[in-house]
Each structure stands twice: as structure tokens, then as C-alpha cells.
């Protein structure tokens, strides 16, 4: 049921469900405004396939695939 950021098609808006990285990284992501309920979308993938760029809270953030895989999302339009 839960999907990660990696499963999201480019440009599709979604809501963050949970972040399950190691504590330091989760805390960092949360403090940069990625919280359960925050709207997010994947803007692009780097030319070599990794990392990916997210758009969240009107700014752009890039994270590696390994980390994006640990961010669970609910695509908009689904329940």
C-alpha cells in the first residue's frame, strides 16, 4: 500500500506519509520541512540516474535514491 518517492512518476504531487531513515537524516529532512502531510513531487532525476530532485515547500532539494526510497508517500487523488 505504502509507496516511496521512487515509485512516484515525475511531476506527480503526493503527500509524505512517513520518513524512515536513520535518526540524523530523518531529523534533518524534517527540519527542512519534509513532514508527514507535506506536499512533495519529484522534479527530475540526475543525468546519471542518481540523485533525484524534489520540490517541497516552494524550494528544490536533491536526495539520493537510497534516501528517497525511505520516504513513504501517498500520491494525490488516492486515499
Amino acid at each position: 500500500m505504502n509507496r516511496s518517492l521512487l515509485d512516484l512518476p515525475l511531476g506527480q504531487h503526493a503527500e509524505i506519509a512517513s520518513i524512515d531513515c536513520e535518526r540524523r537524516l530523518s531529523r534533518r529532512l524534517m527540519e527542512m520541512g519534509l513532514l508527514p502531510g507535506t506536499r512533495v513531487r519529484v522534479v527530475r532525476v540526475a543525468p546519471l540516474g542518481d540523485p533525484i530532485e524534489l520540490r517541497v515547500r516552494n524550494y528544490s532539494l536533491s536526495v539520493r535514491r537510497a534516501e528517497a526510497a525511505k520516504i513513504a508517500v501517498r500520491p494525490e487523488g488516492t486515499v
Partner: peptide, 12 residues
Amino acid sequence: GPAPTFVLEMPP
């Protein structure tokens, strides 16, 4: 140490 995490803001 852990591989460096890559959480980088892409400023305008």
C-alpha cells in the same frame, strides 16, 4: 563513518 548523505538544496 556513514556514506555522506546527500541532502542538498538546489537554490534558484
